[in-house]
C-alpha cells in the first residue's frame, strides 16, 4: 500500500489475523476502503468475511495486524480510547430480528448510539426523526416495538441505528440475506440511495453476487481467510483473473433461462477445506482445476496489477492467465472439473 493511500483511506486493514483457538478465520488479510466507495467483500461461508467485518468494527479483537480507521490504528486500542472512533464506523447485521432489542421502542433503539456518545436528550429526538425519515419510515414508528414491524421495516430500523451517528464507514454484513426478493430490492435501493446522498463508504459483506454486481464499486474476493482477488466491479465480473473468482461467478445462476443455459459452468470438487488445518501453498489448490506443483507448496503473494490485485501463481504480471471456464473437456484433466454444455 502506498503512503498516499494510507492517508486517504476511510479504513485500511494490513496483515489482519484472527484465530479462534485452532480455527484460522482470517489469516493475513489486507484491504482498503476509500471514502464514498462501496467495497464488496465476497466469499462462501467459512471464508472469514463476517469476521473481517467484526474486526473492523472492533466487536472482536484481532490476533495480530493493523486496522486503521481514518488513519488511526484502532486494532490494539483500549475499549475506552476506541470510543470516539465508534461513531465513525457502524454495522448492520443480517438478521434484524435478533439484532434489535425486543423490549426497546424503535425510537430508543435508533437513539442509543447517540446516548452512548453523550449527545444530550434534546438533540437526540430531532436526529432520530431525521434519520428515520431518511430510511423511509414515518415518525410514528418511533413508538413501536420491533415485533410490530415486518422484516424489511426492521432492517430499515437497523440501518437507521447504524447511520444515526453519521458514520464515515458502514459495514453491512449480509443485510438482505434474510429477506424475500421483493423486500431485498427495497433495502438494496435504500442502501444505494443513502450511500449516494450521504456519501459514506460501505463495506458490503455478502455471498450474493447479483447484489454485488448491482451496487459495488470494487470487489474483494476472499477464500479461506485470505484475499484471492481484488478488482473493480467491471474487472471482477467481466475478466476475473483468479480461478476461484472464475468458478464462483460461473456457479451463480442468472435469472434468465436463455442466458443461464448457455453459460459455461465449472463445478468445483469438494467444499471449503477446514479452517483448522488450511491447505499449504495456495489455499485454493485442493479445488483448483489448474493447480500445479508450485501451488501446493508456495503461498502466492497478492500482486498489484491494473484495475486490481490477484494472488495466483498462474496469472502473469500483466494480468493475463488461464480461465477455468475455457478448459477443454471436463471429465478429463483431473476429474476436478465437471462441465455441462
Amino acid at each position: 500500500m502506498t503512503a498516499e493511500a494510507t492517508t486517504t483511506a476511510v479504513c485500511e486493514v494490513v496483515d489482519l489475523v484472527k484465530h479462534f483457538g485452532p480455527v484460522h478465520a482470517v489469516d493475513g488479510l489486507s484491504l482498503r476502503v476509500d471514502p464514498g466507495e462501496v467495497l464488496a467483500l465476497v466469499g462462501e461461508s467459512g471464508s472469514g468475511k463476517s469476521t473481517v467485518g467484526r474486526l473492523i468494527v472492533r466487536l472482536i479483537d484481532p490476533t495480530s495486524g493493523t486496522v486503521r480507521i481514518g488513519g488511526v490504528d484502532v486494532g490494539s486500542m483500549s475499549r475506552r480510547a476506541l470510543r470516539p472512533h465508534r461513531r465513525t464506523v457502524s454495522i448492520v447485521f443480517q438478521d434484524p430480528a435478533s439484532s434489535l432489542d425486543p423490549r426497546m421502542r424503535v425510537g430508543d433503539i435508533v437513539a442509543e448510539p447517540l446516548r452512548l456518545h453523550g449527545v444530550p436528550r434534546s438533540d437526540r429526538s430531532a436526529r432520530v426523526r431525521e434519520v428515520l425519515e431518511q430510511v423511509g419510515m414515518r415518525a410514528g414508528v418511533a413508538e413501536r416495538y420491533p415485533h410490530e414491524l415486518s422484516g424489511g421495516q426492521r432492517q430499515r430500523v437497523s440501518i437507521a441505528r447504524a447511520l444515526v451517528s453519521r458514520p464515515r464507514l458502514l459495514v453491512a454484513d449480509e443485510p438482505t440475506s434474510a429477506l424475500d426478493v421483493s423486500v431485498q430490492a427495497s433495502v438494496l435501493n435504500l442502501l444505494t440511495d443513502l450511500q449516494r446522498d450521504l456519501g459514506f463508504a460501505c463495506l458490503f459483506i455478502t455471498h450474493d453476487l447479483a447484489a454485488v454486481e448491482y451496487l459495488a464499486d470494487r470487489v474483494v474476493v476472499m477464500y479461506l481467510g485470505r484475499v484471492a482477488e481484488v478488482g473493480t466491479r467491471e474487472l471482477i465480473f467481466e475478466h476475473p483473473r483468479h480461478p476461484y473468482t472464475q468458478a464462483l461467478l460461473s456457479a451463480a445462476p442468472v435469472p434468465d433461462p436463455s442466458r443461464q443455459r448457455k453459460r459455461t459452468r465449472v463445478v468445483l470438487s469438494g467444499e471449503l477445506p477446514s479452517q483448522i488445518d488450511p491447505p499449504s501453498g495456495c489455499r485454493f489448490h485442493t479445488r483448483c482445476p489448474l493447480a500445479e506443483d508450485r501451488c501446493r507448496t508456495e503461498v502466492p503473494a497478492l500482486r498489484e496489477m491494473s484495475h486490481g490485485s490477484v494472488a495466483c501463481h498462474l496469472v502473469a504480471d500483466d494480468g493475463t492467465g488461464p480461465d477455468v471456464r475455457d478448459l477443454p473437456d471436463p471429465t478429463q484433466p483431473s476429474r476436478l472439473v465437471e462441465r455441462r454444455r
Binding site: V181, A185, T192, D208, L215, P255
Partner: peptide
Amino acid sequence: LLGAVPTARIDEDERRLREI
C-alpha cells in the same frame, strides 16, 4: 419478482430495482 432481482446496472440512472 423478476424485476426485483439485482442484475448488473447499465448506467447510473438505472440503479434501481423494482420494489413490490
